[in-house]
C-alpha cells in the first residue's frame, strides 16, 4: 500500500437517522494517516458515536464516501462490511465491554473467532490464541492469572477496560476505535490505562481513533480533531441530540 494513502479518508459524508428530516452528520473531508494517534473531542451530542459507527461500517452514510485501507466500505455488501470490521477494526467502549458469561480469555479470543485474518496474525506472535491473550494482558499489566479465572463481572472497571483493550488489540487490527474508554475510570487509572493502550498500539503499528470529551488527555495524541468544527451539520433539536448520544 502506498504510504501516502490515508488509512481513513472521509469525503462529503452526510448521514441522517432513518425517519429524521435533517442530517446529523456532514463532514466535507477527514483524513487520517496510518499509525496516527488521533484524539476526537466533542461535547455530548456532537455525534461522536455516530461518526464511529459510520467508520466502523455499522451504519451507512446517505451520501459521500468512507475509505478505509483503500476500500470504500459504503460499497461493500453488509456481510462483507461486517467481515471488514472484524478483520481490520478493534473497538473499545465506555463501559460493559465484556460478555458476562465468557471468561476473560474467552472474551479476548472471541475477536479471532470472527476473523481468520486476526487469528492468523495472533498465531504469528504466540503459539496459541490463549497465549497471545496472556501476552497482551501482561503488557497491559494484568498478569495475575488468578484474576483471570474470576467471572468478568467481578473485575474492577479498570481491569475490565484493560481486558477490552486486549480484545481490541489481539490479531493486530489496523485501526483501534476507542469510544470514551476512560470516562468511567478515575484520574489515576485513566492516564495509566491510556499510556498502556497507546504504547501497545504503537508496538503493533495500529492507528488509534480516540473519542473523548476529556480535554486533559489531548496531549497524549499526535493530533486532535474538534468534532463540532469537523461536522458542519446543525445539531440542534433535542431529538437529534439524544440520537447522537451514547
Amino acid at each position: 500500500m502506498n504510504t501516502n494513502t490515508p488509512l481513513i479518508y472521509v469525503g462529503n459524508l452526510r448521514f441522517r437517522w432513518p425517519l429524521d428530516q435533517r442530517d446529523v452528520m456532514d463532514i466535507p473531508e477527514l483524513s487520517i494517516q496510518k499509525g496516527e494517534r488521533v484524539f476526537i473531542k466533542g461535547v455530548s451530542g456532537s455525534g461522536k458515536t455516530t461518526l464511529l459507527s459510520l467508520i466502523g461500517g455499522i451504519n451507512l452514510p446517505n451520501s459521500g464516501c468512507i475509505n478505509i485501507l483503500g476500500t470504500d466500505i459504503g460499497q461493500l455488501k453488509q456481510s462483507r462490511r461486517d467481515q471488514f470490521r472484524a478483520d481490520h477494526i478493534g473497538f473499545i467502549f465506555q463501559l460493559f465491554n465484556l460478555i458476562p458469561y465468557l471468561s476473560v480469555i474467552e472474551n479476548i479470543t472471541l475477536a479471532c473467532a470472527f476473523s481468520s485474518r486476526r487469528k492468523a496474525n495472533a498465531l504469528t506472535k504466540s503459539k496459541t490464541l490463549e497465549d497471545e491473550a496472556y501476552r497482551l494482558l501482561s503488557h497491559l499489566q494484568l498478569q495475575d492469572r488468578r484474576l483471570l479465572t474470576k467471572p468478568v463481572s467481578d473485575l474492577s472497571v479498570g481491569q475490565q477496560q484493560r481486558v477490552a483493550a486486549a480484545r481490541a488489540l489481539i490479531g493486530s487490527p489496523e485501526l483501534i476505535i476507542a469510544d470514551e474508554p476512560t470516562s468511567a475510570l478515575d484520574a489515576d487509572t485513566r492516564e495509566h490505562f491510556l499510556s498502556l493502550l497507546l504504547s501497545e498500539c504503537k508496538l503493533s503499528g495500529s492507528t488509534v481513533l480516540f473519542v473523548s470529551h476529556d480535554q486533559a488527555l489531548e496531549n497524549c495524541f499526535d493530533r486532535s480533531i474538534h468534532l463540532n468544527k469537523l461536522n458542519i451539520a446543525k445539531v440542534s433539536s433535542q431529538k437529534e441530540q439524544n440520537e447522537g448520544m451514547s
Binding site: Q78, D82, R85, A86, F93, L98, I99, F114, S115, R167
Partner: peptide, 15 residues
C-alpha cells in the same frame, strides 16, 4: 442488548 452490540462490533453479522 449490550452483549449483542459487542458481538456486532466484533464483526458478528445480524443473521
Amino acid at each position: 442488548r449490550r452483549e449483542i452490540a459487542i458481538l456486532r462490533s466484533l464483526g458478528c453479522r445480524p443473521i
